[in-house]
Simulated scan of single mutants.
Amino acid sequence: MVPWIHLATATAPDGGTLRLLRRGDEFSIRLADGNELMNSRLGGSEEALGTLALDRLAGRSAPCVLIGGLGMGFTLRAVQSTAPPNARLIVSEIVPDLIAWAEEHMAEVFGAALSDPRLEVRTGDVLGQIRGATGAFDAILLDVDNGPDGLVRADNATIYGTEGLQSARRALTPGGVLAVWSAAPDSAFSRRLSRCGFDVSEHTVRAGRTKRGARHTIWIAVRTDG
C-alpha cells in the first residue's frame, strides 16, 4: 500500500485547517479531523456542475461565468471545455493557499487550466462578488461547501439562505443560471430557490466519472422574470 504523504497545510478564514495529501498520482484535501473534502479521482459530480450549467447557456456567444470555489479545478475545466472562445470566466476562492497548491503541488492535475486567457482568479468570498453585482453574470456556479444542509463553514449558510439567493438572482442576467452542488438532496432548499424567483431542476449525479461512487445533488436554477 502506497502511503499518503502530507504536502501542505492551510488555514481557512474561519480558522479551520485544510491539509493537502498525495498518494502516487492521487491527491486529497482534508480537514484536520481527517474528513475528506476533495479527491482528485472523484470529480464527476463537480464536472457535471459545470456541464449542466453551460448546457443552459447554449447560444450565448460571450457568457460571463462566476465559479465559487476553485477546489481541484474539476468544475473550472468542465466549463473551459464547453464555454465559447469569447467567454469570461471568474473563479472566486476564499483560501489563497488553494490557488498556490493548484499552481505548485497539483500542477499536473490542473494542466493549462490556470493559463486560460478567458480566466480570472480572484481571492475572496464568492458572496462578496455576488452582492456587488447586478445583471453581471450569465451563470453562477457554487461548490463552496457540502451543501445547504451540510455546512463545513457556518458563514456559508448565508449563501444558501433567502438573502444569498436573492442576491444571486440580482447578479444574474435575465435567464441566467444559478448552479449549486451538494453532497445530499435538500427539499427545503429546492423550495427556497423557487420562492426566490428561479425555475428549478434537481439532478442526481455520481461522484465518480463512472456509474459508481456516492450520489450527489446539483440544482440548476434559471432566473425567471415577471
Rank of each mutant, 00 (worst) to 15 (best):
V222D: 00
A214G: 07
R77S: 12
F110G: 11
G59H: 11
D138C: 10
A221L: 00
L172R: 07
R131W: 09
A113P: 11
S190W: 01
V79H: 00
D149F: 00
E47W: 09
S28I: 08
S115P: 02
H203Q: 10
A171D: 04
V152F: 12
R19I: 14
S182W: 00
I90R: 12
V222M: 02
A48E: 14
R192V: 10
G197E: 08
F27K: 02
G34N: 11
G197L: 10
G73Y: 02
A12V: 04
A8G: 03
P85N: 09
D14F: 09
W4C: 07
R60L: 12
L66I: 09
T217D: 01
N35V: 12
L7P: 01
D14A: 10
L21G: 12
P174I: 05
P96G: 07
V126Q: 03
V91H: 03
D14Y: 03
R60Y: 03
P96H: 09
G68E: 01
L21N: 13
E93T: 03
R22L: 09
V2S: 13
V177F: 03
V109P: 04
S28H: 10
I29W: 08
E26C: 07
G176A: 11
A214N: 05
A221E: 00
E103I: 04
V144P: 00
G135N: 13
G176I: 05
R195W: 07
A188T: 07
G68F: 00
A179P: 05
R170F: 03
M72V: 11
R215I: 06
L20D: 00
T51E: 12
T204S: 13
I159Y: 03
P13N: 13
V79E: 03
T158M: 06
N86V: 00
D149V: 05
R206N: 14
D225V: 14
T210M: 11
G50D: 03
V144Q: 01
A8H: 06
G213E: 04
M1N: 12
I94V: 15
V95R: 10
A102W: 04
T224M: 06
M38L: 15
A168Y: 06
S61C: 01
L66C: 08
F137D: 03
D186R: 07
D138F: 11
T158I: 14
G197N: 10
M72P: 01
V180T: 15
A214H: 09
A183F: 03
R215C: 05
P185Q: 01
R88T: 14
I218E: 04
M72A: 09
P185M: 01
P174A: 11
T158Q: 12
T11S: 12
I90P: 02
L52R: 09
I29N: 05
D138H: 15
K211Y: 08
A10E: 10
A32I: 06
D155M: 13
V126S: 09
V109T: 14
A53V: 00
L119K: 11
G44V: 05
A78H: 02
L193A: 11
L70T: 09
A179F: 01
R22D: 02
R56I: 08
R22N: 08
